[in-house]
Design a protein around this nucleic acid. Structure first.
Length: 367
DNA sequence: CGTGTCACG
DNA sequence: ACGTACGTGACACGT
């Protein structure tokens, strides 16, 4: 039986599975899988993945999640990308926008090639379709390792975090050891996993509530983790406070290359509005400086490839990653050039920058 | 054209 | 008491 038919059977009727509105009615009024359903801002029933996961024991839920994943991949990638292949050169071309993202990142549209799937098995099948020109070429992917955390270490000058990077430590494990107060060798997978969420959260301007939601612990425990984090990395805390104070005084924050993000709401009397601006004040210099760095690298790499007369092409940028359609014979010099120029894109940093590279017969393999 | 959802870093 | 992690783009639905 088709997934679609199985869902209708479990629902007891046919309906448009692609309509969140209809699906909400089926789940919460017909099947009554919850007495107090979560609602969206506009008052509809929430049916997103996070919400559905809570009802994983109900037979319809797994089918719905499967259906959702498959229809997403089909409509956005499988059905759409073939229509965008250029007749002249048989390739897909994106348009990079340089003045859309408030932080200075590029964005990619028509089609967006910065959100090609990689996280699920079905999604990875899509990424496999991105292949080199021919048998004389190979895909080279080079990405910055933990670039935003390294930039946070740089901008804050936090000794503990800088030391961890200089020692080549696994930063999430090192953070886990610190915030949970255990020896590095006693860090469990779960501790590392939580510390990873905390590290990301810090960059985004975390709240105890947000952290507790994401790692599934009571809010007071989340608050304790954050407190421990700032005790362990005190200069990170000082840097975040300084970012917000600077924004209040100047009305903007800026990146290492002086790109500004104006934050008119930073002094708002509305706590929610002000909170957003404060998180932007923390995040924008970090995300934006990473964007500056890869742009500097791209300029230098483009020039160096040109000067060296290489025929390989730089074909994609995905925020912390560059992808090349590399002539196999040029691979070694190209790799050396890319690694060096990405690593040294911005001179005079204190934090070491790490670049991971790999090659493959398709974009997936190059990871 | 707004909403909800979900693909990526 | 309230809302609650940053940045994007594309798709389907429903008005």
């Amino acid at each position: 039986m088709s997934l679609e038919a199985e869902i209708y059977e479990a629902a007891g009727k046919e309906f448009n599975i692609g309509s969140p509105k209809q699906l909400g009615v089926v789940l919460f009024e017909d099947l009554k899988i919850d007495e107090k359903p979560k609602k969206t801002k506009s008052g509809q029933y929430s049916t997103n993945e996070e919400t559905l996961q809570k009802y994983a024991d109900h037979p319809i839920v797994g089918k719905l999640l499967d259906y959702r994943q498959i229809s997403k991949l089909k409509s956005t990638y499988v059905d759409s990308l073939p229509d965008l292949v250029n007749k002249r050169d048989d390739r897909i071309h994106t348009t990079y926008m340089q003045a859309v993202a408030a932080t200075g990142r590029l964005s990619s549209q028509n089609p967006n090639l910065q959100n090609i799937p990689i996280r699920t098995e079905r999604g990875r099948a899509v990424r496999k379709a991105f292949i080199p020109t021919d048998g004389d070429h190979i895909i080279l992917a080079a990405d910055y390792s933990q670039i935003e955390l390294r930039i946070m270490a740089e901008l804050s000058g936090d000794k503990g975090m800088l030391d961890a990077f200089e020692a080549g430590e696994d930063i999430h494990a090192a953070t886990a050891a610190r915030v949970f107060g255990v020896k590095p060798e006693d860090v469990s997978r779960e501790m590392r996993s939580k510390a990873k969420v905390v590290n990301f959260g810090i960059i985004y301007g975390i709240s105890a509530f947000g952290l507790s939601q994401r790692i599934g612990v009571p809010r007071h425990e989340a608050a304790e983790l954050i407190e421990n984090y700032f005790e362990q990395y005190p200069d990170v805390k000082a840097y975040m406070d300084k970012s917000i104070d600077g924004a209040r005084e100047k009305g903007y924050v800026d990146t290492v290359m002086q790109r500004r993000r104006y934050l008119p709401d930073i002094n708002s009397k509305n706590g929610t509005v002000r909170g957003f601006a404060e998180r932007n004040a923390i995040n924008a210099p970090i995300q934006g400086s990473a964007a500056d760095m890869i742009k500097m690298a791209m300029i230098q790499i483009g020039k160096a490839m040109d000067d060296a007369g290489l025929k390989s092409k730089m074909i994609l940028q995905v925020h912390d990653e560059l992808v090349f359609d590399a002539v196999k014979e040029e691979l070694e010099p190209l790799k050396e050039m890319v690694e060096k120029l990405m690593r040294n894109a911005m001179p005079s940093l204190n934090v070491p920058i790490k670049v991971d590279m790999d090659t493959g017969e398709n974009w997936l393999e190059a990871h």
